[in-house]
Simulated assay, not measured.
Amino acid sequence: MLAVHFGAGNIGRGFIGKLLSQSGYEVCFVDINETVIDELNEKNQYTVEILGQERKEIKVDNVRGINSKANPESVVEAISKADLITTAVGPTVLKMISSSIKEGIEKRIERGKAPVNIIACENMIGGSTMLKEAIQEQMGGSGSLEQYAGFPDAAVDRIVPNQTHDDPLTVAVEPFYEWAVDKTMMVGEVPEIKGITYVDDLAPYIERKLFTVNTGHAMTAYLGYLAGAETIKDALENEALYADVKRALEETGALLKHKYSFDSEVHSAYIEKILARFENPHLVDEVTRVGRAPIRKLGPNDRLTGPASQLMKIGKEPTYLAKGIAAALLFDPKGDEEAVQIQEAIQTNGLSNAITTYTGIEEGSSLFNLIKKHYDELS
Rank of each mutant, 00 (worst) to 15 (best):
L2G: 09
L2R: 13
V4N: 14
G9V: 02
N10V: 00
I11L: 10
F15N: 01
K18C: 00
K18H: 08
S21E: 04
Q22S: 04
Y25I: 08
C28E: 07
I32P: 01
I32G: 01
N33T: 00
T35N: 10
N44T: 01
Q53H: 14
Q53M: 11
E54D: 14
R55F: 01
S68I: 06
K69H: 09
A70S: 11
P72G: 07
P72V: 03
E77V: 02
E77M: 05
K81R: 13
D83T: 05
T86P: 12
T87G: 02
G90T: 11
P91H: 08
P91R: 09
K95A: 11
K95W: 03
S99F: 06
V116W: 08
N123M: 14
G127R: 07
T129L: 09
M130R: 05
L131F: 11
A134Y: 12
E137N: 09
M139W: 14
G143W: 07
A155V: 08
D157P: 03
N162W: 12
D167K: 03
L169E: 01
A172F: 03
Y177R: 01
Y177S: 07
E178Q: 11
E178F: 01
V187K: 12
E192I: 07
E192V: 07
Y198V: 02
D200Y: 08
D201H: 07
P204Q: 00
P204I: 00
T212D: 00
Y222E: 10
Y222Q: 10
L223N: 02
L223E: 01
G224R: 04
A227C: 06
G228K: 10
A229T: 03
E230K: 13
E230H: 06
I232E: 05
D234V: 03
D234E: 15
E237H: 15
D244R: 15
D244T: 11
K246L: 06
R247M: 15
E265G: 02
L275H: 00
L275T: 02
A276G: 00
F278L: 02
H282V: 03
D285Y: 14
R289F: 01
I295P: 13
I295K: 15
G299W: 15
L304A: 06
T305L: 02
G306P: 09
Q310A: 05
Q310R: 11
K313L: 12
G315I: 05
K316V: 11
A326N: 10
D332I: 01
G335I: 07
A339T: 06
I342Q: 15
A345W: 06
A345Y: 09
L351K: 04
T359S: 10
I361C: 11
E362K: 13
H374S: 07
Y375P: 04
Y375Q: 13
D376R: 14
